[in-house]
Design a protein around this nucleic acid. Structure first.
Lengths: 358, 358
DNA sequence: CAAATTTGCCAAAGCGCTTTGGATGATTAG
DNA sequence: CTAATCATCCAAAGCGCTTTGGCAAATTTG
């Protein structure tokens, strides 16, 4: 009845954009055959397939992703959902490396990557919408908190997902990949205890975040096991900026009984702590020891050959790749059991630690 | 003839997902009317519109984005294309802030954001494919080089785009937003010259990148205008990491005639330079001055109340927002003339600069 | 050499939406 | 009271692809 409003001249830019119909007419074949040829189905002779591929390349044909996705029900797209609230998870330098790692995995398997900023306040609605709008086949959940309602919601929605991190309070099984934060910080604390330190400060990330909560757990575990009482005056928890590290350390170093060592949650914090130590006229590694967690970020490397800081290191970029692979696997095989993966951090020894001053 | 393979039970997860047909049957209305009601067309009575909205909310209906986009020819999605080559632009901490800023603008106007990693080697093919696949309405070009073939290509393809930065060698008009890098570094250099510094080092980003090239231009301009010959031994150019800053400064400070001031291209470099200065037993701001460019990143703030470093500051997050807005504007109004915007950086005075030692 | 397979291709339906060009009944004008 | 005008709503086509079920022609089989 009605001609469709989008005429060719409107749809195509100044540059030609082929569609399947045109390509098949050009080849004097049906759309079916061309489609099958391009998608590697067996019901087409090698000669024809060759011809089709040739023509597709010459005429610069790529199938329209939206049409394809509508027809197949799969979008070949992964969503990364970034919670935005007071703090912006995304601007965290860690995010860049994570996403870079994931991106590599997507490219390999022909997936696209979509970012969505979601406000904490209408989280539930947002995730429902993502499902309904249907432009992703699955999502990666960033920044899990200790108790995170998103996991139950997504399970209920039946939208495949993998969590980067875990939510301590969720007991139902789900897909996650996490660093063994507890163990890393227990080891780091042990290392400092072995060096004779007893007043060890913890400068941590926000402890609503699951990873920060676990790190603190490891730290306290280790202290208690040696009969050292965790001192609340030596613990801070906030967003992991340089300033936060600087301020915390400055203030603690000014205490009557200052810490002799700092265990901190990120390179940025560590850099701030180092500044505070210098400013106090002390030397790092001699007067005060520092251990940091190191996400092995490309732009904030912990030294080149010799590490600057003693650190618990775990590559967040590798994590990104693995999480992406897990999700794509899950999408391919929706009935498979939930996968989990725990990455161990390695303790690398730099020049920022030494025996406790006597 | 053939029933479609995707049955309801397969398409829907365990959770109900409404489509337009079902919604309209539920309301005893045609799909046309429901569609018009939801999209605010006038040919529908207020009472009906009300009913439709009500039902949509109750039944948790959101239109399928892929179908909608196929029907309208618009995808409501912006692509961010990240060149990956030796270095990974994306992992640059700047990227996180930029994308966060852009993301906010997208949310406002109901756009989605898609990231694509594109290898430099098959750039042309990749951009063609992006156009053909048609899942973005426009793209944002990151990391422009001095001569950047992407601009001509995209213009030819007729795919709306905005460049974050500029390409010096491209003379045809196109949409861009840039910081006035030349001016910023000229001012910074002038500032140091005014303080009596004559041996001023430049620790720059990769100079194939347009922004770095311009910064160097500003620096050299200022020097020459005062009759100071730019000394190649005082100039370095590489990826802007902490290590690079540290190494460059260490080496230069060990020269026979070391620089008395450093002009550097990023906070990370500056932090490395500071480390080198401390390690050399010098004091920043007294023995050696440092000015950095400061992108005002959320996680690498240049001090709180009092800036640490004297800096040329320009918020990359604001840039992200503006670029996104420009692109959406351009998409809405494809025939409008190319827009350009030049952001001025402000010079903020911290404690890292002082008169040249005599 | 006829019958049973196999091979290679095709027409048409369907994915879920928008939009065109009516149609229908209510309202107003002549 | 009839004709013209509106205000609402609808059927159906089309966006560009995949996939089902068929159907000739070529090949193999008995």
């Amino acid at each position: 009845m009605a001609p469709h409003p989008l005429t060719n001249s409107k749809r195509f830019g100044p540059y030609l954009r082929m569609n399947l119909k045109e390509l098949s007419e050009h080849l004097a074949l049906s759309q079916t055959t061309v489609s099958r040829a391009l998608n590697g189905y067996p019901e087409v002779s090698e000669k024809t397939r060759e011809r089709v591929h040739q023509a597709a390349k010459e005429l610069n044909y790529s199938p329209n992703a939206r049409a394809k996705s509508l027809a197949t029900g799969r979008s070949q797209t992964i969503g990364h959902v970034i919670p935005v609230s007071t703090q912006h998870e995304m601007v965290n330098p860690v995010f860049g490396d994570f996403v870079a790692g994931a991106g590599e995995a997507y490219v390999q398997q022909g997936f696209d990557m979509m970012l969505s900023l979601v406000d904490d306040s209408d989280e539930e609605d947002a995730y429902r919408k993502i499902k309904a709008r249907g432009n992703v086949d699955g999502i990666i959940v960033h920044g899990p908190r200790m108790q995170d309602s998103r996991i139950a919601l997504l399970t209920e929605l039946g939208l495949p997902f993998v969590v980067h991190g875990r939510a301590s309070d969720v007991t139902t099984p789900y897909n996650w990949l996490d660093t063994n934060n507890t163990r890393a910080f227990r080891r780091a604390t042990d290392f400092l205890l072995d060096l004779g330190h007893r007043r060890i400060a913890l400068i941590n990330g926000l402890e609503v975040m699951d990873f920060a909560h676990r790190r603190r757990g490891g730290y306290e575990d280790a202290l208690k096991k040696r009969g050292v009482d965790p001192d609340p005056a030596l613990m801070r928890s906030e967003e992991m900026t340089e300033i936060f590290g600087y301020r915390s350390a400055s203030e603690m170093l000014a205490m009557e009984s200052p810490p002799t060592a700092f265990l901190v949650a990120s390179m940025m914090i560590a850099i701030g702590v180092r500044r505070a130590i210098h400013e106090a006229g002390l030397e790092m590694g001699r007067d005060v020891s520092v251990i940091t967690h190191d996400d092995d970020l490309s732009y904030i490397k912990n030294g080149h050959d010799v590490p600057i800081f003693t650190a618990t290191r775990s590559s967040v970029r590798t994590a990104g790749t693995r999480v992406a692979e897990m999700l794509m696997q899950q999408i391919k095989n929706p009935d498979s059991d939930p996968q989990t993966e725990l990455m161990e951090a390695e303790l690398i020894i730099g020049t920022s630690t030494g025996p406790a001053p006597t």
